[in-house]
Design a protein around this nucleic acid. Structure first.
Lengths: 349, 349
DNA sequence: CTGTTAGCGCCTTCAT
DNA sequence: ATGAAGGCGCTAACAG
């Protein structure tokens, strides 16, 4: 076909390939590959010459072709249940660190608490032939993850409530967290306690409650624990909770509230103070998660911190280990401990 | 080589390929490709037979090979400056929607306000041959983005302060936002105003301040605007601000505070209430960003909403347009308008 | 409608 | 230290 006017620039000159670089540098394709992958095996002179051509041409290697040919990927995928939750952001940061240290890249995908989206991203990473995937799942079936695993692609679960799957997991001891929080307020002298959070169908909420009960039973001495279930773990539920607490008369009002989440605790504190009730003098409150708005509150709120950063690091290490030696890898569950962070909201009376 | 004990499962049976499917179904490779890419061109009977083999074998297509062969990608990359900020999460959601609707997948990367990380992810997406990239950049040089563009890969900037680059951009009118906020409190009857936020070196903070000044000048009638610069836009800075405001005597204390961020406003409200100062009766406050903790406050805080979701949608549409017709694409900057959200914290007196 | 074939860009032995 | 050649898994004509 003859060239018509303007047809010449139609091609939008395609990215230069290694072959182009080789030609430009006057070497063979294999040599270019070597300067990219094993620079030590190339004579210094050719090496610099090839490198010069590389950036003269603005060459970037095609990772698709690279991974395809090499049969392995330098990419990891992380499917995150809720990118708006700072715990997961911390986990992602930890994962990113380890990935970088070990020469891998980390790609993120936000499932947004939606099972279909979670499955779709799992498939995406599977099709993209990533080296392995990290999954912070929502409460729900994990068969899509199993499918990925069945394709020989390692999956490690982070903060997964469900222990039934055959994969490595990194979790934190929720029961212990509830115990620590409750024990702390008992130690501060309060006896009439209330645990709040919900719905109880959430694994973490239930586990933390179990821990709270254990601490109260252990305490004896007339310590009591009331359960106040909420519909969600939000600030606005907390506001409502605080208002209803403020309406109770002093004799029945708990003297300490153990909350399953900082958001809940924060709302509660705000509503109580607004109603003229003193925190921690009249009511002590402790939250959970160590979100920034727990520390950044008029009355800094005590809380239970989860080692998100460490969770991300460990999960990634497990994943890389499984990727590198699938043969002798044995799955394990690493359980991390939550940590008490005492602030003004639970000061002893 | 003879088979030794246990050597058989050494291979960790590699993922089945289209060739395997073809063999299993008794058809040719091309036909399998057709059932995957143009099912209409395949006889119903073969179609179902091939499909049966596909999931009998648990086949998932290799996207690396697919993109390599096809010369185009079905993936978009989004480099996000701060995954902890809900505005960007909203943008990501919008981008995800449009991507999905148009048959593209969206991969995320968190640069975490780090230039090196941002550049590294830009390169990652470049090497991964994504179809195009969305970039919510940090205040800093954009040469890495230019490099990506020079490789023929479209880049669109979201919420980029710097208008100098040659690419499509989606931004919101920050000056207008400051104006709207200020105008609103003026309309509510306040005259002694203060604008707070910082550092002023941040583009958005400075622009919003400019808008505030414009509104005050326009108002005349002895309306005044004090500037209270903060080091950051955090809740704790807001707490400090609220405390210092509470210490002033009534004659000099502003009757309305326009804050450059909800976090700041939230802290301020909390500290004021704690000090016994009434909001909005004694001081009205308006924030910026429409973060959830602005609405979920004892006194719901008025704010300026940014159309994050829409920003993400539009940016992705621009990107897809450029990807699909690079020839006749002309770069443009879409400027969206922020929106006033009036709540209790600025109720008229 | 189905089969055949030639690459896509790179890695990786194996020679030289 | 460098070059040559086969193949990774798939798409996209083109034949039949």
């Amino acid at each position: 076909m003859t060239t018509l006017l303007g047809e010449g620039n139609r091609a939008k000159d395609p990215a230069p390939s290694m072959a182009d670089v080789a030609r430009h540098a006057g070497v063979s394709l294999g040599t270019v590959s070597n300067v990219l992958n094993s620079p030590t095996k190339v004579a210094p002179s050719t090496l610099s010459r090839v490198r010069a051509s590389i950036d003269a041409l603005g060459f970037v290697r095609n990772n698709l072709a690279r991974s395809l040919a090499a049969g392995r990927a330098d990419t990891l995928g992380f499917v995150i249940v809720d990118i708006g939750n700072s715990l997961f952001v911390d986990i992602a940061r930890g994962a990113q660190e380890v990935s970088g240290e070990q020469g891998m890249k980390l790609l993120l995908a936000n499932s947004d608490v939606d099972l279909a989206a979670q499955n779709s991203y799992l498939d995406l990473f599977d099709e993209a032939r990533v080296g392995g995937v990290l999954l912070a799942p929502l409460d729900g079936p994990l068969d899509a993850a199993a499918r990925v695993r069945s394709h020989g692609r390692p999956v490690v679960l982070v903060n997964a409530p469900d222990p039934q799957t055959d994969a490595c997991r990194v979790v934190v001891d929720e029961e212990l967290g509830g115990y620590l929080a409750t024990r702390h307020v008992l130690d501060s002298g309060r006896r009439r306690l209330a645990y709040t959070g919900g719905p109880l169908s959430l694994h973490a909420v239930a586990q933390r409650y179990a821990g709270a009960r254990r601490a109260v039973e252990e305490a004896g001495h007339g310590a009591t624990l009331e359960l106040i279930e909420t519909a969600k773990l939000t600030i606005s539920e907390g506001l409502a909770l605080g208002r209803s607490l403020a309406e109770r008369d002093e004799a029945t009002r708990p003297t300490a509230v153990i909350s399953a989440a900082d958001a809940l605790a924060s709302g509660c504190v705000q509503a109580l103070i607004y109603a003229g009730i003193r925190v921690p003098d009249d009511i002590a409150i402790i939250g959970y998660d160590n979100n920034h708005f727990a520390s950044d509150s008029v009355v800094p709120i005590s809380t239970i911190g989860q080692p998100g950063h460490e969770m991300g690091r460990i999960a990634t290490e497990l994943l890389l280990e499984e990727i590198r030696s699938p043969e002798d890898h044995v799955h394990r569950t690493i359980t991390l401990e939550p940590q008490l962070i005492a602030r003004a909201s639970t000061r002893a009376v």
